[in-house]
């Protein structure tokens, strides 16, 4: 007869904590409800509620004489939103946001691709550090630093002068719309700073999406006769699309809502964020400010619907 060795003692059920953990083990839904309840209440009431209040505001109007809000449902504010001056602000902002998004995606893709496919160990750590590092310093400090870099007496002009390329800068600044008397007070300057500031929000989702693309799919495409360009077009890009869409939601909506960068760097023409700021503050026209904020919501909704139609989320 062999004797069975004595087994190690099981953890004892000690006191309330022990009873509680056993109870949660038997009723996992209770634990889930406790964990998810508070954030869901927060999202439902505080976030969605205020969003709804905002939407509601946009259907009120302001009395031109008294400056008081007239609490009657009307589309007058939206008519005001679509006036030429306001439409100009919307188009300017949306065009800028679209360009910033596109430029970020194009600049970032090769970096994200390298980080996802080739960087290992220390190289990868360095990549994350490099992407996150700009986020460690204050947003305002970065924007003012860029103002100095882009100013007429700034380092960029000095550097181009040293390279005898000042004529190139002058030619660019002489162009209509994108030009101006210096980079720091032109749309080009606004664009450069927007791209710089929001780029990290584009690079991380794309890198994450590319990391999830199995290496053997790229080999399979190549094996089946796909040249690197075809492999990119038919395999890598479609599979990275959810990441690009996610990143572009960040860059696009952040640019749509920003009111500091265009105020510090660029021409004095307004962007949506500045218009909202002015309308709800000095002008006291809360309904119009609300109507302005509806624009990004509508655009983002339409954008996501289009992305879904294009099959951006098919591989999710």
């Amino acid at each position: 007869m062999t004797t069975v060795a004595e087994s190690f003692p099981l953890p004892e059920r000690r006191g309330t904590a022990g009873r509680l953990s056993d109870f949660f083990w038997r009723h996992p839904h209770v634990l889930l409800a406790i964990l998810l309840g508070p954030p869901l209440i927060w999202l439902g009431i505080v976030y969605l509620g205020s969003l709804f209040a905002l939407l509601l505001q946009s259907f009120f109007s302001i009395d031109d004489f008294s400056g008081l809000i007239n609490y009657e449902f009307t589309l007058a504010t939206y008519r005001q939103l679509l006036s030429e001056a306001n439409l100009d602000i919307i188009i300017r902002t949306v065009a800028m946001a679209a360009l910033v998004t596109l430029a970020s995606a194009v600049i970032v893709f090769p970096i994200a691709y390298y980080a996802a496919r080739y960087a290992r160990g220390k190289g990868k750590a360095l990549f994350y550090l490099a992407v996150m590092l700009p986020l460690w310093s204050s947003y305002l400090v970065k924007v003012y630093a860029w103002k100095l870099i882009l100013a007429k007496e700034g380092i960029l002009t000095w550097f181009l002068a040293k390279l005898n390329l000042l004529w190139l800068l002058d030619a660019w600044l002489a162009l209509p719309i994108v030009g101006g008397s210096s980079l720091s007070i032109s749309y080009t300057g606004t664009f450069i700073v927007f791209v710089y500031v929001w780029m990290p929000f584009m690079i991380l989702p794309i890198q994450a999406a590319l990391e999830r693309v199995p290496a053997n799919l790229i080999e399979a495409s190549s094996d089946l006769g796909g040249t690197p360009a075809q492999t990119f077009r038919h395999v890598i890009f479609p599979l990275a699309l959810p990441g690009i869409v996610a990143g572009s939601i960040f860059t696009f909506s952040l640019t749509l809502g920003d009111y500091i960068i265009p105020q510090i760097i660029g021409s004095s023409r307004l962007f949506i964020g500045q218009a909202v700021y002015a309308q709800q503050g000095t002008a006291g026209n809360v309904p119009l400010a609300a109507a302005f904020t509806v624009v990004p919501i509508v655009i983002m909704g339409a954008y996501l619907w289009m992305a879904k139609r294009m099959g951006a989320f098919d591989a999710l």
């Binding site: 080999e219 399979a220 089946l224 006769g225 796909g226 075809q230 038919h234 479609p238 599979l239 099959g311």
Partner: peptide, 25 residues
């Protein structure tokens, strides 16, 4: 041409497009 160990089918394409991939490129 290779038959991969874990098949390496393209998840975003239909079966027909997967099979026709080599001819498409």
């Amino acid at each position: 041409n290779t038959v991969f160990q874990d098949y390496a089918l393209f998840p975003h394409l239909s079966i027909l497009d997967n099979v026709a991939y080599g001819l498409m490129v």
